[in-house]
């Protein structure tokens, strides 16, 4: 099927099989390899992206379902190569180690902060519930998000 999606402001038109998951489309067809795959059951959230303003896991969406949408991925977060405040906070608070879950964490917390610029610690943890990290134990991720909360 022919689909057109806008990812990080750029529109792509591609022919895809209906069975292709959005995450494979982003990674393999568009070469946007920042979003990752850490499970096969929709649990880990490493593939989280924002579709038409809504945070989703791109492994539970078919690429064809994204037809006509505007997608934001980790590659689109920073402008002119500079880290955003949130990205800087992850660096300052050592909120990443291997970095594999990090793109998903950033998308989830970006979505959180848009909706709730001053989340409590509990709200931050609740917002991270769909993202698994095996390196950090989450503590420093929560600290990083807290530090940019208003």
């Amino acid at each position: 099927m022919e689909i057109a999606v806008t990812v990080n402001g750029q529109t792509y038109e591609r022919d895809v099989e209906p069975r292709k998951l959005l995450i494979h489309f982003l990674r393999d067809d568009l070469d946007l390899t920042g979003s990752h795959i850490g499970c096969d059951t929709g649990n880990c959230g490493a593939c989280s992206v924002i579709v038409d303003g809504v945070l989703l896991k791109s492994c539970m969406l078919l690429a064809v379902q994204a037809n006509g949408t505007r997608i934001e991925t980790v590659e689109g977060l920073s402008e002119d190569g500079e880290l955003t405040r949130l990205q800087q906070a992850f660096n300052e608070h050592h909120a990443l180690q291997c970095g594999y879950c990090t793109p998903g964490m950033l998308m989830s917390t970006t979505a959180l902060l848009r909706e709730n610029p001053s989340p409590s610690e509990d709200e931050i943890k609740k917002a991270l519930q769909g993202n698994i990290c095996r390196c950090t134990g989450y503590w420093n991720i929560v600290e990083a998000v807290k530090s940019v909360a208003k």
Binding site: V54, L56, M60, S108, Q129, G130
Partner: peptide, 9 residues
């Protein structure tokens, strides 16, 4: 139920 992403969809 599950998590934010799942609840959104």
């Amino acid at each position: 139920i599950a998590d934010v992403q799942v609840r959104n969809r």
